[in-house]
């Protein structure tokens, strides 16, 4: 050990005295391929990829369209969606989500086409049902990064 390093005992005592840091939820790490999506959510709008060849809307994970098209426009859509499927989580993947239990994870389908995984908010878990009408709300989780979530429309 270098002489200027704190002794292990001292470090442990400091750690014990300090309040434990709140565990943090995963935050997306945008790449150039999907930054418009996350930035859009931070700006309060939902942007999907729209194929220049066939006009099909799709989630940002696609680099090629079903039609084979490789060129896309980022288009802002209404955020209106229906619930495709859902689950109410009673066990969290991570301590950061424990305070939220029970919470709803859902696959939502946009009126223009395309789907995303998300959370349902503003809705009692027992009132959730497949096919229900939803609208997007946005939660900014870091500079330039928003998460789309959905509530009953």
């Amino acid at each position: 050990m270098k002489p200027d390093m704190p002794k292990t005992e001292t470090a442990a005592a400091t750690a014990a005295a300090a309040p434990r840091p709140r565990p943090s939820k995963p935050v997306p790490s945008p790449s150039d391929a999907n930054r418009p999506f996350w930035a859009g959510c931070a700006a309060g709008e939902l942007r999907l990829k729209c194929c220049k060849a066939c006009g099909r809307h799709q989630a940002p994970t696609r680099a090629a369209c079903h039609c084979g098209g490789l060129a896309f426009d980022w288009v802002t859509v209404s955020g209106k969606a229906t619930l495709f499927s859902y689950t109410v989580l009673h066990r969290a993947p991570d301590p950061a989500f424990k305070d939220d239990l029970p919470y709803v994870v859902a696959i939502v389908e946009f009126e223009q086409g395309g789907r995303l995984m998300s959370n349902l908010v503003g809705c009692a878990p027992e009132a959730v049902h497949c096919g229900m009408a939803l609208e997007a709300v946005f939660e900014t989780v870091a500079e330039g990064i928003g998460l789309p979530k959905f509530r009953p429309a």
């Binding site: 995963p26 935050v27 790490s29 689950t87 993947p93 998460l147």
Partner: peptide, 26 residues
Amino acid sequence: WTDDWEDPYGLTVPGKYALIAQRWMH
């Protein structure tokens, strides 16, 4: 790995199969 399209929403592996189950029931 962390999956940006799923993990920020607190999805678990049982949760993934639950999404299939809920859809099947529907």
